[in-house]
């Protein structure tokens, strides 16, 4: 069922910018329009581009946010999330945890 909703109404996850907009909802309680506007502004794209796989594939590759079909060497997992936290100017718990561990 969630797969059906993703196809019909979803932003597209890390194929696009759905994961980034979701982060703004869960960390800043932003409503959908506000969250899209915030992420679009940080990424320097339009709000509509956020659901466009053609635009976002390139943007994610350039910013090191991780893509579904990444080539060897592309940021993935934790590394990608560290870049996302920096560009979106938010705290991501596991990245903060890694930073604390790194300093210890």
């Amino acid at each position: 069922m969630p797969i059906a909703h993703s196809v019909v109404s979803g932003m597209g996850g890390m194929r696009t910018a759905g994961d980034l907009v979701a982060r703004m909802q869960f960390t800043q309680k932003m409503r959908i329009s506000e969250a899209k506007a915030y992420v679009a502004n940080k990424l320097k794209v339009s709000a509509q581009d956020l659901s466009d796989v053609a635009v976002m594939r390139e943007v994610r590759e350039e910013l090191g946010f991780g893509v579904v079909l990444g080539i060897p060497g592309d940021p993935k997992g934790m590394e990608a999330k560290a870049r996302i936290a920096e560009v979106l100017d938010i705290r991501i718990n596991c990245v903060e945890r890694l930073k604390r561990r790194g300093r210890a």
């Binding site: 196809v7 979803g10 996850g13 759905g18 979701a22 959908i32 659901s51």
Partner: peptide, 21 residues
Amino acid sequence: GVVGVQIGNQVVSTQDGGDHR
């Protein structure tokens, strides 16, 4: 058979039920 939202109207899609979907 299937309808969808207009381009640009997409929203965040989450799931519940854990990793047992």
